[in-house]
């Protein structure tokens, strides 16, 4: 899963999709995920990195990550809609 190239993500968690004109906000964990996705990181790597940074079980992170990914997919922020 990769974020569309033209999506602008600012440091304070403001996201703008120039193709649709829609904007979004994300919290810190969401911002971390977006940045990792943008780098093209794999699911496992994202979970690993988040679990190193935050106090949480991998299982919890994995569950939340898939929910979050479903949301960004729904918002059409994903490349060639897997």
């Amino acid at each position: 899963m990769k974020i569309k190239n033209n999506i602008a993500v600012s440091d304070n968690g403001f996201i703008f999709n120039p193709a649709s004109g829609e904007s979004f906000t994300v919290n810190q964990v969401g911002l971390d995920i977006l940045n990792l996705l943008r780098k093209g990181e794999k699911q496992e790597t994202i979970i690993q990195q988040l679990s190193e940074k935050y106090q949480a079980d991998k299982a919890v992170i994995e569950r939340d990550l898939s929910d979050f990914q479903a949301m960004i997919k729904q918002y059409h922020l994903i490349q060639n809609e897997e």
Binding site: F24, N27, V29, G30, D32, I33, Y54, A56
Partner: peptide, 14 residues
Amino acid sequence: AKARYERPLIKKLE
């Protein structure tokens, strides 16, 4: 110490 975890959130600006 690790940071407090909060589940990721994305919110559309209506």
